[in-house]
Design a protein around this nucleic acid. Structure first.
Lengths: 242, 242
DNA sequence: ATCTGTCAAGTGTTGAACAATTCAACAAAC
DNA sequence: GTTTGTTGAATTGTTCAACACTTGACAGAT
């Protein structure tokens, strides 16, 4: 019998999925505060279910909850960006080291991602371009063959994506990153892992400083804490759990 | 000015903390199924709050939820152990590479952990010994100075600890690992990172194969999936309950 | 024995309530 | 005018009770 693909997901999980998509797509921008009752009603679920969904996303790092003050879409600080790129360096380089005997299937997927990336840039669909860019890197991680590392990487990339919706088309030009990825793919298939790692590190450093720069220009006046204001000191107000 | 941090944690978080402790301490053994209503009543909270707590722990990987079938304490498969030690290798080695200029404060803590480890072994308090052992390794991770990597490491170690409650005092002898850790500390303070990394890798491989061996002897046939399957396995699951 | 329908138990979800906390606006005091 | 209570609406945290839906086990029929 075909018992393969019967997915029974709870409503809470589905709601979490919807919200996750909205956050990652930029429909819900960082700092946006989400109220339980209106959101629950708009999706036709009960408040408890919505709370479960929000709990999921806050544990994923996409939402930040501060007690009795509400839930908001996470905002990245420069320190967060540093950390996330640190994570990327550690994991992606480790992945390259595990790619001595790359699975041909994975290489094909990498190539496909590369092509879709280029196509998206050509059509100037930059949201899609960024997606395929990140997908390319996610595929690298698969060389590790480790579910835990993969899902941690995905979660981290998710946080990064939230921050990147601020960058969007006006400030950045994803097209210029095409040659780098092509080179990475080429070196990878040629087995020149050492050199590949070098290029990859450069690429990551480049991306990080680019994003940091944009964030500095863009959000100069608004600190991550600004949404929850307290008259005496805005800093201590950042008491956050989850 | 110096106010001690005011901790405002939700009840759900506290309940999650209690359950986490029970799981990590081995009071709740892997495979034990947890029922919402009795547990909620025993802790004096509502069912919804208990569900939130369980959601937290299942996202942490300590509990495993299968829809409409209940929640049980996670069980590690051999594959899980492989993955977890893979994670440890990647992170701990990366941490060592970041320890070129080790913070003296961290070195002191490492030394303290080492001492407490030895004391615990001397008193034959092996649960405490394992804790200090793992704490020693957690301190290594702090060299990375990366909150995300640290919490991911902690989460992973947590899963491992759940599996280790099966090993416990009868099958293993933590004492013999003291010299390795002392050597690690010594090489680290001497700045011989290359050699330190080598020893660390050996140590991790050793621990992994030791745990795998014990799991093979101990739990022979059980895979994590099997508990939710058919009648025959249902018996095996029941055996774990007592 | 195998199969099938029934049934109790447990989880998933809902809706409504109440308690606790925050925040802003306003009043009172210096 | 600034600071310091005080009030009150709004929102979140938590509880409670109900119902729908699955599941696993059991009893009776084949």
């Amino acid at each position: 019998m075909e018992r393969s693909q019967i997915y029974r997901v709870s409503v809470a999980d589905q709601v979490a999925g919807v919200l996750r998509q909205r956050v990652l797509s930029g429909e819900l921008r960082p700092g946006t505060s989400l109220q339980e009752i209106p959101l629950a009603e708009s999706l036709g679920v009960s408040r408890n279910t919505m709370r479960e969904a929000m709990r999921i996303l806050s544990l994923e790092g996409l939402l930040k909850r501060s007690i009795h003050r509400g839930i908001a879409v996470a905002q990245l600080s420069l320190r967060d960006v540093q950390e996330i790129y640190h994570v990327r360096r550690v994991l992606e380089i480790s992945a390259l080291e595990a790619a001595k005997a790359p699975a041909p299937e994975l290489l094909r997927e990498l190539f496909a991602a590369l092509e879709q990336y280029e196509e998206a840039v050509e059509v100037r669909d930059w949201i899609s371009a960024v997606n395929h860019d990140l997908h390319f890197h996610s595929l690298l991680i698969r060389f590790l063959g480790n579910k835990r590392l993969e899902s941690f990487y995905q979660k981290t990339i998710g946080e990064l994506r939230v921050g990147m919706v601020l960058v969007d088309q006006r400030h950045d030009h994803p097209g210029i990153l095409i040659p780098v990825h092509r080179k990475l793919y080429q070196l990878l298939t040629a087995g020149k892992l050492k050199q590949c790692a070098k290029i990859l590190l450069q690429h990551l450093d480049d991306s990080e400083s680019r994003l940091s720069k944009v964030m500095n220009d863009h959000g100069a006046t608004r600190t991550p804490e600004s949404s929850a204001r307290s008259k005496t000191n805005g800093k201590a107000a950042a008491r956050v759990h989850d």
